[in-house]
């Protein structure tokens, strides 16, 4: 069964054509990575999935919610779709523990005790059980991002979206975050990851999508083959640049 379905989706910002004829499906439990140059529409596509951006036309169904329908309750839909941001966006006025428990208590109406119990287990999972009472500005970027992942997981989502989760991190912090993401992927979470981490895409991703200029130019399940031999010319150029860079 599919979790996310784009059919002929178009997205405009005023005159700017950000997404062009997007047809794209993510199955349950699939880990899809999206790569491409900046400004290619990767983040816009991701943000459409949880309704942070609305599509201009076409059809977008996420976990059986029709996002093109104005009557769809976005809040309900978002309960099942978590998002991890490039700049973490932890709640600055809350402790690490409160960052994680707020969603479950305020949205899922779970008890405080249960939420804290689960939050501590999640902090354990991301290796930050000793930081429960710290505030976000007392943590490094990598630590903040791991808390952000724990916060998303606390909602027990059916899918997680990652918007360049390691792009704002110091190089030595990236590994820890990717390791946590890999663990989650191995547990069967449906994930859509916009990233520049080609290693992660190759190792963890079940599928790779290449975007440029608002279009999906390549969408392949044979990820390692893609890295050896991309079909699209722009994907070839992009990869050769990225790999040269490494």
């Amino acid at each position: 069964m599919s979790m996310i379905e784009f059919h002929n989706v178009e997205k405009y910002y005023g005159q700017f054509h950000a997404l062009k004829d997007i047809n794209f499906t993510v199955d349950n439990g699939e880990v899809v990575t999206i790569i491409g140059p900046s400004g290619s529409g990767k983040s816009t596509l991701l943000r459409c999935i949880n309704g942070l951006e609305l599509i201009s036309s076409g059809q977008l169904v996420v976990n059986n919610y029709d996002l093109a329908d104005k009557k769809t309750d976005m809040n309900k839909m978002r309960k099942n779709v978590g998002m991890v941001f490039q700049h973490f966006n932890l709640y600055a006025n809350k402790t690490v523990l409160q960052n994680i428990t707020l969603g479950p208590t305020a949205v899922l109406k779970q008890s405080k005790a249960q939420s804290e119990d689960e939050a501590k287990k999640l902090l354990d999972l991301v290796g930050l059980d000793n930081k429960a009472n710290s505030f976000p500005d007392q943590l490094s970027g990598g630590q903040q991002q791991r808390v952000a992942i724990a916060r998303s997981l606390a909602m027990k989502p059916k899918a997680l979206l990652f918007d360049e989760p390691t792009s704002a991190l110091d190089p030595e912090m990236i590994g820890d975050v990717l390791q946590v993401m890999k663990t989650i992927a191995e547990q069967g979470m449906t994930m859509v990851v916009v990233t520049h981490e080609m290693g992660f895409a190759q190792e963890v991703g079940d599928r790779i999508v290449f975007m440029d200029d608002g279009r999906i130019l390549e969408d392949r399940k044979d990820v390692s083959e893609f890295f050896k031999q991309p079909e699209d010319k722009r994907a070839q150029e992009f990869l050769s640049k990225v790999i040269k860079h490494i």
Binding site: L52, K79, N89, Y91, A92, L102, V107, R151
Partner: peptide
């Protein structure tokens, strides 16, 4: 207040 705070809260399921 940084717009990311609102986006994170909405993504977290909050109204």
């Amino acid at each position: 207040v940084d717009v990311g705070q609102m986006e994170a809260a909405r993504s977290n399921g909050m109204t």
